[in-house]
Simulated assay, not measured.
Amino acid sequence: MSRPLFVCIASLLLVACVQPPLRGTGDLGLVVERATGSLQIIESSSLTRLAQVDGLGDLSHASAVFSRDQRYAYIFGRDGGLTKVDLLEQRIDKRIIQGGNSIGGAISQDGRLIAVSNYQPGGVKVFDAATLQPVADIPATALADGKRSRVVGLVDAPGQRFVFSLFDTDEIWSADFSQGNTPTLTRFTGIGRQPYDALITADGRYYMAGLFGEDGMAQLDLWHPEHGVKRILGDYGRGQEKLPVYKMPHLEGWAVAGSQAFVPAVGRHQVLVMDAGTWQQTAAIPVAGQPVFVTARPDGRQLWVNFAYPDNDRVQVFDSETRQLVADLRPGPGVLHMEFTGRGEQLWLSVRDGQQVQVWDPYRLTLLKSLSADSPSGIFFSLRAQKMGY
């Protein structure tokens, strides 16, 4: 064998040896490290941390959505940053500053568009998911001082739509991109004072906004938008609370199990139970503190509840059928977020002040593993790519 041929073959073999093994992304996720503007890429199959990605800016209220193929995550930062992260190459693919203060975002039904809701400037900006090039700018309603309303509660909806709420002007808007990149806007006004957050049901039918300025919730039936917005759960809110509100619940923290919806009460030590067909309250479950997230195990049998300060060192587990307390756990100080794996065999939770992420077996109620993390907050698995409103 000639020397040049030998060198060529040896080089090819060397390159083959250093290529990373092929893998999928279905068991990958992210942990937000809010204090350092970084992410951990985690793998649920082996309960391990694969990599750390730095340089994502202000992640104090960060959230994430995933591309259809679950390879890319889109991170929405409080500094107006929109960052596309490659989970396989474990690096930032692209990052832009699209606003001054953003509060979340969504990916369209077809995975082609990324929408970001902004406090400053008030409105929604929409980008091409592949390139992060701007596609549309939707300014919110102008205020008397020349500023525009803050936008909250942005979700994706069926029919290539985004739906969102305007905090300062008491509105819900629907932006329909089904006919191209110039959206058709539908505005609903007078929906209730100061909508502060929202959710969409798993089937994409109902959009519901919580109201900060009065009791109740605003509900829009996306099957029948011509019926307008109606009020549900009239005593849900701050009007009758007996306690100071330390942390407003995130409405994504609702849980639906069977025909029931479980809702964190505002300013009360209760989880409210609603009939998911009539959206009327049927019961209330007493809990240890002011609930923030009520997370259902994927089979619907368990509810995991975490709390605002000063009870944010504990998590309570309830049986959704009997509504009885199953366990009262003490994972550590500052439990912020909880996320189940797709089939429910693991529950991951962030313990911010304990500087760790914990993985629990929700069936045996035992701690499987703890991973170190720098002030962890949100946990997001790539399985969200296949879910509406996530």
Rank of each mutant, 00 (worst) to 15 (best):
Leu28Arg: 13
Leu367Lys: 15
Ala129Gln: 02
Val273Tyr: 06
Gln324His: 09
Ala385Asp: 03
Arg148Leu: 01
Gly190Arg: 11
Gly99Tyr: 10
Val266Thr: 15
Gly105Pro: 02
Ala35Met: 03
Ala51Asp: 14
Ala257Cys: 09
Glu321Phe: 08
Ser11His: 12
Trp304Cys: 11
Gly99Asp: 06
Pro139Met: 10
Asp69Pro: 06
Glu252Pro: 00
Gly159Tyr: 06
Leu367Thr: 04
Asp54Glu: 04
Gly81Asp: 04
Thr25Gln: 10
Ser38Asp: 02
Trp304Gln: 02
Met274Gln: 14
Phe262Met: 06
Ser350Thr: 14
Ile97Arg: 12
Gly80Ala: 10
Asp110Leu: 04
Tyr363Asp: 03
Arg23Thr: 09
Arg23Met: 01
Gly80Cys: 05
Leu47Tyr: 09
Phe167His: 12
Gly277Met: 03
Pro376Ile: 11
Ser377Glu: 12
Phe164Cys: 04
Ala255Asp: 06
Asp168Trp: 10
Gln386Arg: 05
Val287Ile: 09
Ala283Gln: 09
Val317Gln: 04
Arg314Glu: 05
Glu214His: 07
Leu59Arg: 07
Leu371Met: 13
Thr186Arg: 13
Val18Asn: 01
Val357Ala: 06
Pro21Ile: 08
Lys147Gly: 03
Lys84Leu: 01
Leu87Asn: 11
Ser63Glu: 05
Ile172Arg: 00
Ser2Asn: 14
Pro195Glu: 03
Gly267Phe: 06
Val229Gln: 07
Ala106Leu: 00
Gly354Met: 02
Arg148Ile: 07
Ala157Gly: 00
His224Glu: 13
Arg187Val: 15
Ala130Thr: 09
Val152Arg: 15
Ala198Lys: 15
Gly210Asn: 06
Gln280Cys: 02
Glu33Cys: 10
